[in-house]
Simulated scan of single mutants.
Amino acid sequence: MIIGSNIIPYENLTSTNTEAALLLKKNNIPEGTVIHTEYQTAGRGQHGNRWESEKGKNLLISIILYPGSVKSEEQFLISMTISLGICDFVDRYLEGSKVKWPNDIYFKDDKIAGILIENSLMGDTIESSVAGIGLNINQENFPGEIRNPVSLRMITGREYEREICLKNLLCDLDKRYKLLLYGDRRKIRDEYVNRLYWFNELHEYMAGKTIFKGRISDVSVSGILSIIDEKGKILKFSFKEVDFIP
């Protein structure tokens, strides 16, 4: 087992990703080390967004990885891998989890998990990667400013043992990570694309001030999203260049 072979528990942290980055600077940390906390005072999401979580209700972890065989131009493969591992976990309890590009896990139209991947590059390879995950397990009340959150408990009406959930999550992530290191990366990409929220469905999007309709068709290993508009033109977007219109 790579992911989960070493777990460092905390009661409180500013951010698990921040703590992981500090540990990487100070120590020779084994690959697969998991930083796990009950509460974050300044949890971070993608592009500076905050991740809000009630103390002792959810899973808040960061995983230290050394995916040296992954080229820098393919670094979104790490996000694909982590996303699929979380979907595998959710599928233990519920069918139908999806990945909302680039970094959210959805059940139906609600967000059950978020991912923050922070890579340290060395030339054309990845020296280290910190994969931060916030996964809603037992929380039932969320701040009003958070759009469409959901948890396992809200969906099923059951309370879950978070230690068991953590064990299962790390097992699922470990299987996916080994596929990234030693297996078929094309399979990872293909599964990720087929898991995409709104994949091949006609929906509205906004790019800049322009609203258009299109169908998601692909995501590259560098993270570029492809949408085919109603005229058949393939439009390509990087992070924050396009918004989904509910």
Rank of each mutant, 00 (worst) to 15 (best):
G134R: 06
N136W: 01
I137H: 01
Q139G: 04
Q139S: 14
F142P: 05
G144R: 06
G144E: 12
I146V: 15
R147S: 07
N148D: 14
N148Y: 15
P149N: 04
P149L: 00
V150I: 14
V150M: 03
S151N: 09
S151W: 07
L152N: 11
R153F: 06
R153Q: 14
R153D: 00
M154C: 11
I155D: 07
R158K: 15
E159I: 13
Y160L: 09
Y160M: 10
E161C: 10
E161F: 01
R162T: 12
I164Q: 08
C165F: 10
C165K: 09
C165V: 07
L166H: 04
L166V: 00
K167D: 10
N168M: 07
L169V: 09
L169F: 13
L169M: 13
L170A: 00
L170I: 03
C171P: 03
C171T: 13
D172W: 08
D172A: 00
Y177F: 06
L179R: 14
L180R: 05
L181M: 08
L181T: 01
G183Y: 10
D184Q: 10
R185H: 02
R185F: 12
R185V: 04
R186T: 13
K187C: 08
K187H: 11
R189W: 12
V193K: 07
V193W: 12
V193N: 11
N194T: 08
Y197K: 14
Y197I: 09
F199L: 04
L202M: 08
H203W: 15
Y205C: 05
Y205Q: 04
M206W: 02
A207G: 03
A207E: 05
A207R: 02
K209T: 12
K209H: 01
K209S: 08
I211W: 09
F212K: 13
G214N: 07
I216P: 11
S217M: 15
V219L: 00
V219Q: 03
